[in-house]
């Protein structure tokens, strides 16, 4: 009994450490990889609690390894967009200019009921009010209402110093336009933390902060 108590205490501390190491993102909406890690950690920790024949180290090792993989995977997602698309997928537009993309809904296995429920969760009760809706990678749906809409929603052209060709294409822009815009401000793509542009080519540019 005492052994189980001590093991529980150690594993409790370990799981708290694991969740803290994964960061605050973990507590809110989960990305697919985060969901997997959360499910696995809770299961693995339980095994070691119940079965005292299993060395504690054998229970702790996979918990720590999974958390480390998750942290490194989120770092890779940040650095490499391709890796991020592979692990997390990419946001998909399901309503464009008030028109439902039924093919995309089928691809995402979103029923009309799911769609309406997601819209209601976003505070929209009528389809007619929706200008844009995007199924995010964490499973939530972001909605841009017609009343708020000033044309297309802004596209993220640069994220963390990396140009997003797909977003450029969707915004009807090209690399030259972005480079010229930045050059006028004495900047380069790799200096930019975030650059968005809307349909009227109104750009928002946020520079990278100097790393400590």
């Amino acid at each position: 009994m005492t052994i189980i108590l001590i093991r529980t205490l150690i594993l409790y501390a370990l799981v708290i450490f694991a969740v803290r190491l994964m960061g605050k993102r973990q507590i809110g909406e989960l990305q697919p990889s985060e969901l997997v890690v959360t499910i696995l950690i809770s299961n693995i920790a339980t095994f070691s609690l119940e079965d005292t024949d299993i060395p504690l180290l054998q229970g702790m090792l996979p918990v720590l390894a999974l958390v480390c993989f998750e942290v490194l995977s989120s770092w890779c997602s940040l650095r490499f967009p391709g890796f991020r698309r592979l692990v997390c997928g990419s946001p998909q537009v399901i309503i464009r200019d008030g028109v439902i993309d039924q093919q995309m809904l089928r691809k995402l296995r979103f029923s009309p009921d799911d769609l309406m429920a997601s819209l209601r969760t976003a505070g929209v009760f009528s389809m007619e009010d929706v200008q844009y809706a995007v199924a995010e990678t964490n499973g939530t749906v972001s909605v841009l209402q017609k009343a708020d809409a000033a044309g297309d929603p802004p596209r993220m052209l640069i994220a963390d110093g990396m140009l997003r060709e797909q977003a450029l294409h969707e915004a009807g822009l090209d690399r030259t336009y972005v480079e010229q815009t930045l050059r006028r401000k004495g900047l380069h793509i790799k200096d930019i933390f975030l650059m968005t542009a809307d349909a009227k080519k109104h750009c928002t540019i946020i520079r990278k902060e100097a790393q400590a």
Binding site: L21, G23, L64, C68, V71
Partner: peptide, 10 residues
């Protein structure tokens, strides 16, 4: 810090 901690643990 998290990346380095993870690498050290790994």
């Amino acid at each position: 810090t998290r990346i380095y901690t993870s690498l050290v643990i790994l």
